[in-house]
Design a binder for these strands. Structure first.
Length: 458
RNA sequence: GGCGGCGUGGCCGAGCGGUUAGGCAGGGGCCUGCAAAGCCCUCCACUCCGGUUCGAAUCCGGACGCCGCCUCCA
């Protein structure tokens, strides 16, 4: 079984499964109040890779990732635009799924919406309140963090230092500055749900704990998310589960940040890049390759240069697919366990990935194999080369990266020019042949001469 | 202030005591009417100063620089 760094135990350890052969994993999804950004792209790609790999290994993966469709930011945006919260949430959820499809992230097994689980959230808060773990203040319900013995375990810091660092509180009557809102009382004109402790809406931390436990059950296997969610979001999810007597995630995994010019990408620094925009401008596979080529816990530098680098590397992969006529795999489809190739390459890739998801080493091994396959083919060992190329294709496919050997359909006009150019070349009329090549290039084709004549592709 | 992480060749990015990481770019070659694409080969490293060791990018100590979390955040 794969070994992963566990943020709670701060060590790499095997992922243990509640049920043999079945993986239950939860990934904190987006709050839909804007276009997805590069950070969203990274976390979805990283956990999609893990999910695909586990599926490829024959595990039955129950992958839950939520949509947070009620939140202060959604409310504020709706007010600013004079529209409803649900209109905002719907619109950006659409954008989200469009981007996910484009980048080849497979849809979750379940993608719960926070607003569909409010009743369960109310029940949880009532339960906590009955034990005085949740308490009421003027603006809502709060969680008493002192009631969880190991609160701060995920943060990896002593409680004192967390308390010392806490900013000036707006709600001064909280029992501790660390206590967090479970429920926010309804305000004029804002969406709200009824509750015994007063109409209002749930706090973010309560949403995720209810949805994850609700769909995956007590003691599910793995909880994933961006490093910035570790504290306080994940800490607070865990606190609520522990306090209400539910064993929570047995393993925690966090991915690193997207960096721009050496700094964490964030809206406040105005170095924010929209994923939607990137996917419209570049080959969507480039970002996946970029993510695969760095370790999931390391920061990655995203810039036009690193994306272009990946696009060129992709060219080489595609040319392998062309040379060996490999089928296009992956996309929204999984490469199934039944297709696992035998051999040393597969063993190496497996070994690397099982060691805390070392995809950079796995990709390096695949590129080495690419050279090897080409060399074998050059030396006339066609069958061996073909087998190796197919293994490379399958293994990249298992990680969600599709190799594309097929060129796009050729229109009648271009086909005619190709025909004319081949005639010109046959007659050794190089001037005319070059002129026709130029016109094909202007139409956006890459023009190559082959033993059978002009070959064009895009 | 507290806690944690990082500093690798032109760029990205692995590495966890001894072996070529890998990719992109650069250089050379093959192929080609010329190209393009592709293939093959190849130059270029480990922030600095001490220490441990037969041997350190890798371990220890120190210096400098950078980043993150502690606050909404993937």
């Amino acid at each position: 079984m794969i070994r992963l760094f566990d943020s709670l135990k701060t060590e790499v350890r095997p992922l243990r499964l509640r049920e043999p052969g079945k993986v239950s994993m939860y990934v904190c999804g987006p709050t839909v109040y804007g276009l997805p950004h590069m950070g969203h792209g990274r976390f979805t790609l990283v956990w999609d890779m893990l999910r695909r790999w586990l599926t490829f290994q024959g595990y039955d993966v129950n992958f839950v990732s939520n949509i947070t469709d009620i939140d202060d930011k959604i409310i504020n945006l709706a007010a600013a635009q004079g529209t409803t919260e649900s209109a905002i949430a719907d619109r950006y959820e659409q954008e989200w799924w469009t981007a996910m499809a484009k980048i080849g992230v497979a849809p979750p097994t379940h993608s719960p919406h926070a607003t569909d689980y409010v009743a369960e959230m109310v029940t949880l808060i009532e339960e906590l309140a009955s034990q005085d773990i949740a308490y009421r203040l003027s603006d809502g319900m709060y969680f008493d963090t002192s009631r969880v013995a190991d609160y701060g375990a995920l943060a990896g810091q002593p409680l004192d230092s967390l308390r010392a660092g806490a900013r000036i509180e707006t709600v001064e009557e909280k029992r501790s500055p660390l206590d967090f809102a479970l429920w926010k009382n309804a305000k004029e004109g804002e969406p709200s749900w009824p509750a015994s402790f007063g109409a209002g809406r749930p706090g973010w931390h309560t949403e995720c704990v209810v949805m994850s436990l609700g769909l995956l059950g007590d003691g599910f296997d793995l909880h994933c998310g961006g490093l910035d969610l570790k504290f306080p979001h994940h800490e607070n999810e865990r606190a609520q589960a522990v306090a209400s007597g539910h064993p929570f995630a047995q393993h925690w995994a966090h991915n690193g940040f997207v960096m721009v010019d050496g700094e964490k990408m964030s809206k406040s620094l105005d170095n924010f890049t929209s994923l939607t925009d990137l996917l419209n401008r570049t080959d969507p596979r480039a970002y996946r390759l970029l993510v695969l080529r760095s370790h999931y816990r390391s920061p990655i530098e995203v810039s036009p240069a690193t994306i272009e680098d990946a696009e060129r590397a992709l060219d080489r992969l595609d040319s392998l697919a062309r040379r060996f006529e490999l089928p296009a795999l992956a996309g929204e489809e999984f490469v199934s366990a039944a297709n696992q190739p035998a051999g040393m390459l597969s063993d190496r890739v497996t070994e690397y990935l099982e060691d805390d998801l070392n995809s950079p080493l796995a990709v390096a091994a695949l590129f080495e194999a690419l050279s090897q396959a080409n060399t074998l083919a050059d030396e006339g060992q066609g069958d061996e080369a073909q087998n190796l190329a197919e293994a490379i294709n399958t293994l990249f496919g298992a990680l969600g990266l599709t190799l594309r050997g097929q060129s796009s359909a050729i229109d009648a006009e271009s086909a005619e020019i190709v025909k004319l150019r081949d005639q010109a070349r046959e007659g050794k009329n190089w001037t005319e042949a070059d002129r026709l090549r130029d016109s094909l290039v202007k139409l956006g084709w890459v023009v190559e001469d082959s033993p059978t004549g002009t070959v064009i592709r895009r």
